[in-house]
Amino acid sequence: PQTSDLRNGSTAAEFILVGFEKSSPPTRALLFTVFLALYSLAMAMNGLIIFITWTNSSLSSPMCFFLGHLSFLDICFITTTIPQMLTHLVTKNHMVSFVSCMTQMYLVFFLGVAECILLAFMAYDRYAAICHPLNYAQIMSRQVCVRLVCPSWIFGMINGIFLAYISFRNPFCKDNHIENFFCEAPIVIALSCVGPQFSMKLIFADAIVVLLSPMVLIITSYARILASILCRTSSSGRGKTFSTCASHLTVVIFLYTSATFSYMNPRRTHRPDKDEPFSLLYTIITPMCNPIIYSFRNKEMKGAMGRALGRGNLAQ
């Protein structure tokens, strides 16, 4: 294994990702095949959703508009980490430069935060559709949707810059081995030799704001949706309403659970064998599941995907 001694006070010029270094060659080959298949599926499904939501005039609802942006975020997100992981599974050189590591971390934060905020606005869209159906078109007009999407991108960019700076502001003189398959902030910060505890507290505080603030909007929206559903006497109406929310709730649970365990746990309770499964969950499993969940739970989307694939009977 490649080693580097940084105890003389010099800062790391490069890092070594050792997430799968201990795996045997057959295991790495199997992982490469599985992750390549998952990555290809995620790219194909998200790409198809982007194509049909941005070119099909019949899919003009606010939820489809948000879903197109969500799929675009997912494509960017998985491309930030998975191609590098696949390369490291088949090569012996697991080094990444300081600049590459910082850039990757910035993109992960930028895209991840933007997706968290976008999911909160999608919950508000479900609230407006269910609780105010007669005024839904005015409440969620195209102008309003654009005004909701733009802040998610802008805040994600600003937050990514802040967190990348916090993670790399101190010199790295302990070690340059990252116990993961990408440059994850808490693990990188732990390698710094000056005040890593303060940086970890800033990351934790930021995670509280970024994760819990959108979660408040999501919980509030669904609390009002639940109250509206319980007031209805028709059981079929309740089932239909629950069905329209199930897709979004599933995606929210996947993303927020994995992100919470990765960034809101005390680092003393973390071990590489515990961190990697959650990292895999929000870097590849969630982006792959998003289009599948939405396409199979949405009749409009199923019909459009069937027509796009030349199989109109898919909707049936």
Rank of each mutant, 00 (worst) to 15 (best):
P1E: 14
T3M: 07
R7I: 14
S10H: 13
A13S: 15
S23K: 11
S24R: 13
R28H: 12
L31E: 10
V34L: 15
L36F: 13
A37K: 05
A37R: 02
Y39F: 13
L41D: 03
G47F: 04
W54I: 06
N56E: 02
L59Q: 04
S60E: 02
D74V: 07
I82L: 02
P83C: 10
Q84C: 09
H94L: 06
M95D: 08
V96G: 09
T103Q: 00
T103C: 04
Y106G: 11
F110D: 03
A123Y: 04
Y127N: 04
C131W: 03
L134S: 11
L134R: 11
S152K: 08
G156V: 04
I158V: 15
I158N: 12
G160L: 12
L163G: 00
A164V: 05
I166W: 02
S167R: 05
F168R: 03
F172I: 06
N180D: 05
F181V: 01
C183P: 03
A185K: 01
A190R: 03
S192K: 00
A205N: 15
I208E: 00
I208M: 00
V210I: 00
S213M: 14
I219A: 07
R224N: 12
L226A: 06
G237H: 08
T244K: 03
L249T: 10
M264Q: 12
M264D: 07
P266G: 13
T269N: 10
H270Q: 14
R271A: 08
R271Q: 03
P277A: 06
S279E: 14
T283F: 08
N290H: 04
S295C: 13
R297W: 06
K299N: 15
E300M: 04
R307P: 04
G310A: 04
N313S: 15
N313R: 13
A315F: 13
